[in-house]
Each structure stands twice: as C-alpha cells, then as structure tokens.
Amino acid sequence: MNIIVIIFLVLGLIFFTGGSVGIIRFPDFYSRLHPAGKLDTTGLLMTMLAAALYTIQDFSTESLLTGLKIMLIVVFVFITGPTATHAIVDAGIRAGLRPWTKKEKAD
C-alpha cells in the first residue's frame, strides 16, 4: 500500500514541477496557461489520491470520512480549475492581448 502512495506522490510532484517550469518556459500568456491549468489540476489529483489512500489505511468511520473529504477537494478543483483558467483567458482576450504565433515571429 505504501508503495502505491509513494508512486502517486512522485507522480504528483512531477506534474507540479512540469506546471511550474512550463509557466516560466512558454513564450506568451496564452500558452503559459496550458501547463498552469492542466498540470496543476492533475498534480493535485495525484497528491490528493495519495493522501486519501494514506488516510484510510487505518480504517475507521472518521478516516473514511476524511478520505472522502479529500476527494471532495479534487471534485471541487476539477470543476473550478477549468473555469478559473477560462476566466483568465477571457480577461486576456477582452483586454486586447494578441496570442503569440509563429508567423508574427517570422516577420
């Protein structure tokens, strides 16, 4: 059981690292949102899965409820995360930021 928890933790860490490196490396605001929005959500899913599995190891009603609450965070983030990403993109479009494309770069 512990091995599964460790695997999930490491996977979560990889996704989180990818998200952080991504928002530094990508060229413009719109493409930075791809790692920020997706990799962080999945990293959170992996970490929370590990935490929930670790919590329900010593099984009781309370630990089961705590594990379910941890999964409730995941559900919440899976609904709100894309919406927050969309809100930021929307703000960029309305503020008049132009997306970076290859053709502009070539000119």
Partner: peptide, 22 residues
C-alpha cells in the same frame, strides 16, 4: 503583464491546497 502575474498566483494557489493537506 498583470495577467501573467495572475497565472503565477493561480498556480501558487493550487499548490498551496496540496501543501496544506500534506
């Protein structure tokens, strides 16, 4: 831009959620 800062703050926020549980 300001929006880039917001992306950074949002990313920190989702990591903080994980950190609190840990």
């Amino acid at each position: 831009t300001v929006l880039d800062r917001m992306v950074g703050v949002n990313a920190i926020g989702s990591k903080t959620t994980a950190l609190l549980v840990v």
